[in-house]
Amino acid sequence: MSDNQDDVLVRIRDLHFSRGDRKIFDGVSLDIRRGKVTAIMGPSGTGKTTLLRLIGGQLRPDSGSIEVDGLEVPKLKVSKLYELRKRIGMLFQSGALLTDISVFDNVAFPIREHTNMPPSMIRDMVLMKLEAVGLRNARELMPSELSGGMARRVALARAIALDPMMILYDEPFTGQDPISMGVIVQLIRLLNDALGLTSIVVSHDVQETATIADDIYVLSEGRVVGHGTPQELAETDSDWVKQFMQGLPDGPVPFHYPGTQYAEDLLAGSEQGRGA
């Protein structure tokens, strides 16, 4: 733990980031509080995953500040950044398990890379982590033999292998059947509280996220458009946030792709037909 013990673990201020000509973030500021599950929500393509990569230092912002546990991530040297990453677990959407080694070896991977523990102790640690996600008896399987939900749970066991201070979840609910979705929803909350973690969940699954999040930020078009507890956001006045939270097909985000009016288009077609 660092000396920095204030309530906010990740502090983002006036973040700007673009890919080519496309602006992804245009002045985003947000705080992730310690010990809480914070959700970052928004429609597909709003750069939620990009935000996680910025926090993890895999991308550099154009401007603005990203502070994790008192350290300014974009300015860290590679060695310091790697030190910080040892204290951050990340769960990728695909699981990102190493496909050529077994479940056991996947979970043991970060422990073997970063510690000099004897094999017997590594075995105990791996079994503890796998027990926490309910897959202790699947340790001999290869990643190709796992279902999508199981792969994500193994990846979660790997993410907590080094007892991190924070876990970043990238779309943890996407493509899951109801049972494995329920398991993962429960695990995120349980692990956060039992291990005293801080969790950032990036998702567009409103219902599942709202059940476990303490705090939600809603992003759209590079800006924070809503912030509050799930309850506060459910009662919001903003039409945009209301449309997103309730999944309404039409509203400030139109159902129809912008362009000419329907009637105009039809008339233009019939005129062309007459002309021909």
């Binding site: 990453r85 190493l98 970060p110």
Partner: peptide, 21 residues
């Protein structure tokens, strides 16, 4: 394929340099 399945990225986030590993 390791890159497209995010394995390299996953290693980076586990503080393991994929170029070295």
């Amino acid at each position: 394929l390791m890159k497209s399945t995010e394995q390299l990225s996953g290693m980076e986030m586990m503080a393991v340099d994929p170029i070295k590993r």
